[in-house]
Nucleic acid binder design. Sequence first.
DNA 1: AAAAAAG
Length: 504
Amino acid sequence: MADKAASPEKKSWADVEEEEEAKAKATAAAEAAAAAAAASSSSSITEPAVEEQAKQIEALSLAPSVDDAAGEEGPPLLDDSDDSQIQAVISGGTVYESATTFEDLKLSPELLKGLHDEMGFSRPSKIQAITLPMILTPPYKDLVAQAHNGSGKTTCFVLGMLSRVDPQRKIPQAICICPTRELAQQNKAVLMRMGKFTGITCACAIPPAQKDYMPISKMAPITDQIVIGTSGTLIKWITHKKLATRDIKILVFDEADHMLAEDGFRSDSERMMRDIQRSAGGCQVLLFSATFNDRVKDFVTKVIRDGNQIFVKKEELTLEKVKQYKVQVPDESAKIEVIRDKIFEFGQKVGQVIIFVRTKQSTKNVHNALTREDYVCSSIQGSLDQSEREKIIQEFKDGYTKVLISTDVLARGFDQAQVNLVINYDMPIKFGTRDEPDYEVYLHRIGRAGRFGRKGAVFNLLCGQTDNVVMKKIEDYFQHSVPEVRNWQREEDFEAALKDAGLL
DNA sequence: AAAAAAG
């Protein structure tokens, strides 16, 4: 309680790094909106005390989510003292105390040690404070939770899995499904660090590299308590009885909107859910993502009927600290020129860069075009052999390569704090359309910069009329106007943009 | 016109 009053700057995991300007103010405001959404989405408020709390939360949502410099009029800035008014969030008639500290959550000493000593987290982030009690309190209701990119969702479900697993029993008790192998591996790495002192083990269910191929019949049954993987391999392990599902207590869908989208992994996900629910009975389902479009949200709320729900309005979803820009270029070769001669000039000084392209072939083309003796670039896409994918990711995470060209394989979830510049070489388009943006992919891509409230910049390279139509639709959708870099040939214009973003 | 996973 005492530290609550004396915390003008929010000491959470956002500031593990040295940046003191990463005060996570934007995150706090945005997450309050999440809490408000949670309160308003619950229809059955009965207890008066609860109702009052819900009103407080609702009131918070009226505060602007803009911080400094935005210059918009309106009520005063939502800061941490207001923020601390959030004590409980209710949903479906169950009351949950929001957690102020990890200690409030009655986590095991081993887990607390992992959080503090290994991860360096001092306090839960907002989404963690709200969802962890929901995840960890009986009757272990299902949960669908939306929160901003880089706000700490992974910790929510990793802690959930680690807490609900019995370390003494050497059988699978928790499963996490991810859309890409990279994300599965990353989540496993986080879980292993956080659970370092628990003795809990974890298997990664992704296809092996060519050189490690082994027929499934020769594979030993899984004895790890937790399995994290991609849908195809998980299903394969289950159908070949290498992964027993009867003791699964918790099933997590990371990037859940994509895992449940019709043009995503819905059929695989439904099959997993059906099989596990059938063999394990009442297993808790957790759905996490930064995005849930109306279509998916509609479907999800039908699937998770009796669960807790937290949603964020799409207008409040863009990260304040990640400045977006558009750059008009005459043709494709100008895109290369801009990246090489303008953006790299400054971008390289600043941190790491991810360049998103639409097709696998483009990763190679752009890679070749950008390769010069003084720039170390690498590129990744899903057709590479697994060992190659791992090597490229490792080199990037180690900071050996500064510029990574990627398809949307890395659009979601990929977490590298040093990435503060994202370039949309191609704009994300819904498959089968010419000028219909994929809003969710756009948001996820730009979320690769600005992890945990850090500053970042995005350059959208626009060439031709359809690109402009797409950009305009994106601005309208998120109700966020994107300024233009005036002249693609002027280095000073890019310098100004990066300065404005706080990167220079 | 096609990212992603996997058979």
